[in-house]
Design a protein around this nucleic acid. Structure first.
Length: 209
DNA sequence: AAAATGATCAAG
DNA sequence: TTGATCATTTTA
């Protein structure tokens, strides 16, 4: 499995969002390898995008990493108890990032389950399996991604992406983004992308492809 | 439908 | 310093 190079993260953020689908996110954590397949993302294009934390080139300590080169992790805390993981995109100086909204759990399934629910995978019912990583906060919990991963270089050995399976055909759907009611005209931008019919996306019944 | 929960931000 | 907000999840 080939780790994605820096060039993968460069260029147009919407293009990259679609490129991300089907790739594998890997977290080497405590001697275990945690892995999930990316099935849903959202693009945030700072300067022009009222939904983005970096809208209008807003520059705070939290978003600082978005102003650096692409291919780094932007992690933020939300609602007191959850984390969300984004991948910095575009080029240095352009504060764009892509939120990872859902994963298909791949491995180590038992460790993912323990991280998420504190019980073994074999104890999970069908519903718990579906709910394991089908949201941005859920997947961070299962993958043990938190503030300590802020600013991680995805071209390093700790947190990174690997290539999709060869010859894989996926159909990409798009929709407006989730939970950005404050974003005025940006509410309607179709910048959420997901793999058609994948069972692990969030809100599977809300938008048809 | 609504609570839980605390980091982050902008105002003052 | 403080009060409001929030790219969510859970439970009911």
């Amino acid at each position: 499995m080939k780790k994605l190079p820096r060039e993968f993260y460069e260029g147009d953020t919407l293009d990259m969002s679609k490129r991300l689908l089907g790739k594998y996110l890997v977290h080497k954590d405590n001697g275990t390898e945690l892995m999930g397949r990316i099935v849903e993302v959202e693009a945030y294009k700072g300067p022009q995008d009222k939904a983005a934390h970096s809208y209008n080139n807003k520059r705070t300590e939290r978003v600082e990493i978005m102003y650096g080169p692409p291919g780094f992790a932007y992690i933020f805390a939300i609602y007191g108890m959850y984390y969300c993981m984004n991948i910095v995109s575009a080029e240095t100086g352009t504060p764009n990032a892509i939120l990872i909204r859902a994963l298909e759990p791949i491995s180590d399934l038992n460790q993912l389950s323990i991280n998420r629910y504190n019980k073994p995978y074999s104890d999970l019912n069908k519903r718990a399996i579906i709910n394991m990583t089908n949201g941005p906060g859920k997947l961070c919990k299962a993958m043990r991604i938190n503030k300590s991963n802020y600013g991680e270089d995805l071209c390093g050995d700790k947190l990174y992406l690997v290539e999709s399976r060869d010859n894989e055909e996926i159909e990409i759907c798009e929709s407006p983004r989730i939970n950005i009611d404050y974003a005025e005209e940006a509410i309607h931008y179709p910048w959420r992308f997901f793999i058609k019919d994948n069972p692990f996306i969030s809100y599977p019944n809300k938008w048809k492809c």
